[in-house]
Design a binder for these strands. Structure first.
Length: 333
DNA sequence: AAAACGTGGTA
DNA sequence: TTACCAAGTTT
């Protein structure tokens, strides 16, 4: 694996080449990449990571930024709890004068679970940690032909992973396993003929490596309906901030009718008067599918409650989550 | 322990 | 179009 990695490592902006020296501030860059990459593809992360480190080159810079700026900068990346935790973690790190250097210390920071703490410990600090992400999980499940279905199999997979982890090379090894998982040992249509560890792979021997890891069937997504309200006056639109908890918590948004993933909206508008029908947008979340009607108001009156008039010329800077960016496009069209 | 939590890409 | 998948964490 390590030999293969030396010749096949992907070139990624947050990564030090195999065997390379770690520069000062590396932990910040690795941490940011790991958090952005949680349930998110490399293709989506790469440009956002570049822009982020250009704007906030160090963890201290990030700790000094406002919540509002940071949440807006995360817009479109999804799983917004990551951004809320990122702010808290950055401030905790700046306060204590640097990142904790151990897996256990890192695990205490908000937003760092078992995987991410282990990954940073291994990649940024050279600790002998065993980070098990979806790639490692898949590679190991195939190597050992683990028949037990997820998530029950996690314990066994973690234990098998530990048996093949090389001492002193955990950082390179986990990155090798992730590159192997991303390019060769892929979820669908694995390229076993190119695999450097094929001879050791029990899954390959079964003839059906793609069967591993065994996954349970998914549940159906509920269909939800709701409405969002576009209130426009003199080249500005009324935006609100969503509550800290729940979907898209802490993000700027259009006012809505109270829909959630569990319940349809009331249809009730935040303002009396004439509402135009601006059509609808559909959006699929992890756990629900939403059809959002967009209603437009260009009359008189100010909506009740907190909010702000946002200039339409600068709407792209508002940091709207994708759902509301779609709704805005619909309202403007 | 199961469910909540976004989004974009691919087949 | 539907279904699945992607460097998971929190409650």
């Amino acid at each position: 694996m390590l030999d293969w990695y030396a010749g096949h490592a992907r070139s990624l902006p947050w990564r030090v080449p195999p065997g390379g020296e770690r520069p000062a501030g590396h932990a910040y860059r690795v941490w940011l990449s790991e958090v952005m990459l949680q349930q998110t593809t490399v293709a989506a992360v790469r440009p956002r990571w570049e822009a982020w480190v250009a704007r906030w080159p160090t963890v201290e810079d990030l700790a000094s930024a406002s919540d509002e700026e940071i949440m807006a900068a995360w817009a479109g990346l999804g799983y917004y709890a990551r951004a809320r935790n990122l702010v808290k973690a950055a401030r905790a790190v700046a306060e204590r004068g640097g990142f904790p250097q151990s897996e256990a210390g890192l695990r205490e920071l908000p937003g760092l679970g078992d995987y991410t703490a282990a990954a940073i410990a291994a990649i940024a600090f050279g600790e002998d940690a065993v980070p098990v992400d979806a790639n490692v999980e898949r590679v190991v499940a195939r190597l050992f032909a683990v028949d037990e279905p997820l998530p029950k199999a996690r314990k066994a997979i973690r234990a098998e992973a530990a048996t093949i982890w090389p001492e002193g090379r955990a950082g390179d090894f986990v990155q090798a396993a992730m590159d192997l998982g991303a390019t060769i040992c892929t979820a669908r249509d694995p390229k076993c003929l190119l695999c450097p560890v094929r001879e050791h792979c029990e899954g390959y021997r079964t003839g059906e490596p793609e069967r591993f890891p065994v996954k349970p069937p998914r549940k159906a997504k509920p269909e939800r309906r709701g409405a969002a309200f576009w209130i426009e006056r003199d080249g500005a639109v009324w935006l609100v901030r969503r509550p800290e908890t729940g979907m898209m918590g802490g993000m700027r948004a259009l006012p809505d009718d109270g829909w959630t993933a569990r319940v349809d909206g009331s249809g009730e508008a935040p303002l009396d008067g004439e509402w135009e029908d601006a059509g609808a947008v559909t959006h699929t979340f992890t756990h629900a599918r939403l059809t959002l009607a967009v209603k437009r108001h260009r009359g008189e009156g100010k909506p009740s409650g907190d909010g702000e008039w946002w200039l339409l010329d600068r709407l792209d800077e508002a940091g709207l989550p994708t759902l509301f960016a779609k709704a805005a496009d619909r309202a403007i069209a």
